[in-house]
Design a binder for these strands. Structure first.
Ligand SMILES: [Mn+2]
Ligand SMILES: [Mn+2]
Ligand SMILES: [Zn+2]
Ligand SMILES: [Zn+2]
Lengths: 150, 150
DNA sequence: TTGCAAGTTGGAATCATTCCAACTCATTTC
DNA sequence: GAAATGAGTTGGAATGATTCCAACTTGCAA
């Protein structure tokens, strides 16, 4: 069960929504709270399941709508890996993602500004990028342990 | 209309397929030739249209099969952007992709080894990555010109 | 009160991809 | 050389994430 938003987070939600002319609703509060509660890059379906525990009448369509709204006002990032379901990430700091092939888990990897700079610098003249997505694919300790301890 | 494979490319195809116990077929030759002919990161549908000009009976299912086979034996890479259709790239050198939001075109960006190294180096201990995907999102000269010259 | 606009809802529609069973064709096996 | 084998191909059906839509709800404004 999701506990409600902290004063600070509720304010961030209200503020970001207001900035793009939209309102806080009970559904949006819960969906946002779900994202903040467990930062494991949940899919829409994951969010739907978790949010339902607090609001049984919530619909899947609304979860899609809320998440789209959040992405639109910059509260959340979408994370795609290959052709899998889209995942959602409330971490707004510049970061890359590490996808553990063994567990399917997605981890945030901090991105130092100088790396971002050096990446921008490899673009030929005439190419202006607004965003850079970086995703690693591999195994982490987590999964290595599982396979040796089993 | 696609011209047939050069001796060198046919050999590469034959060799890569043989290495994973598979055979050269007319369909695979044409699909591979289509990929080499225009390196614009075509979708399955694009490849299907182009290949059909040389082999009208070719089926979409076969194009999916051929491309999957090529990915499996390392002849081509899949390229995904957001939730769009998968694209295919026969450039085997390490490179990133630049997606022009205005035109939808995808460009290869050469990746210097030192950038790859520095990226690997930001992974915390315990994370071992086999592959790194980097994609830029933005506008290129190409699209800037279009919007000012129109 | 009534009206309006934003938001929510359930179900239908979309669309890329995967699955499947029948068919083709080249290569063994008898 | 007929029959069997097996990889590959094919068209169409199934899948599954996402989008679309029309009806319903709600809070606020006229
Ligand atoms: Mn503000
Ligand atoms: Mn070889
Ligand atoms: Zn993240
Ligand atoms: Zn490429």
């Amino acid at each position: 069960m999701i506990q409600s938003l902290s004063e600070h987070d509720r304010e961030k939600l209200q503020d970001s929504l207001a900035h793009s002319g939209q309102k806080v609703t009970p559904q949006r509060e819960i969906v946002f709270a779900v994202l903040l509660a467990k930062r494991d890059h949940p899919t829409v379906e994951d969010v739907f399941q978790r949010a339902r525990e607090s609001m049984p009448g919530l619909s899947l369509a609304t979860v899609y709508n809320c998440l789209e709204t959040f992405v639109g006002c910059g509260l959340v990032r979408q994370v795609n890996h290959e052709r899998e379901s889209t995942r959602y990430c409330p971490n707004l700091a510049p970061h890359a993602h590490f996808r553990d092939e063994a567990t399917g888990h997605v981890h945030d990897i901090e991105l130092p500004p100088e790396i971002i700079q050096s990446l921008r610098s490899i673009l030929p003249p005439g190419f202006n990028s607004e965003t850079i997505e970086i995703s690693f694919h591999g195994r982490s300790q987590e999964s290595a342990q599982r396979s040796t301890s089993n």
